[in-house]
Computed example of a mutant assay.
Amino acid sequence: MTELWNWRIDGGAPVEVYPAMAEALGRVVMPLAVADPARLPAYAVVCDVWEAPGAYGTVVDCYGVPERLPELPAIAALARVLGRNCLMRDDTLDAGRHLLVAPDGTIRPVHFDVVETDDGEVLSDQRLCTEADPRCRGWSRCHRSRWAPDSVGPALAAA
């Protein structure tokens, strides 16, 4: 178990997210605050869920996720179970670029303005990553991603 996932959800209280995570992942999901490492089942996923300011203000951190549990289908399943859009970081290392995962399984790259605050990152001004935006053309980091501007793809677990 070495994976760490950091996701954001468009709304949803933590009390709603934990059971949705368990259903989506098909595993026991333990809140970080009550997880006892000595008594954790081998298949459990430990999560911390909290509310942050800004867009996609429900933040989910999953710790010690088994390597054989793929992240993209997992977040797609969560989006479907919750009926809400979810975000995950993309592969560009650009703090403002994320993958938007819709409840229907559609995945597309998006950008946000990001401001660091005492409460963490605050996201605002969501916009699609598209060739129509001059910031996404040419030599931008967007073209280094497997999710190029204007790309739309399915998540395997979302069907």
Rank of each mutant, 00 (worst) to 15 (best):
W5Q: 12
W5D: 05
N6K: 12
N6W: 02
W7N: 04
W7R: 04
W7H: 05
R8E: 08
R8Q: 10
I9Y: 02
D10F: 06
D10N: 12
G11E: 13
A13Y: 13
A13F: 13
V15P: 00
V15D: 15
V15C: 00
E16L: 08
Y18F: 15
A20Q: 04
A20D: 11
M21V: 02
A22C: 09
A22G: 15
L25M: 10
R27Q: 08
R27Y: 06
R27C: 11
V28M: 08
V29D: 04
V29Q: 06
M30T: 11
M30N: 01
M30G: 00
P31L: 03
L32E: 14
L32T: 09
A33E: 15
A35P: 03
A35V: 04
A35E: 07
D36L: 14
P37S: 11
P37Q: 12
A38N: 08
R39W: 01
R39H: 09
R39Y: 01
R39C: 02
L40K: 08
P41W: 01
A42T: 01
Y43K: 10
Y43M: 03
Y43V: 00
V46D: 03
V46C: 03
C47T: 14
D48C: 12
D48L: 14
W50Y: 13
W50N: 01
A52C: 11
A52T: 14
P53K: 10
G54Y: 08
G54L: 09
G54E: 07
A55E: 15
A55N: 04
Y56S: 06
Y56I: 06
Y56A: 12
Y56G: 11
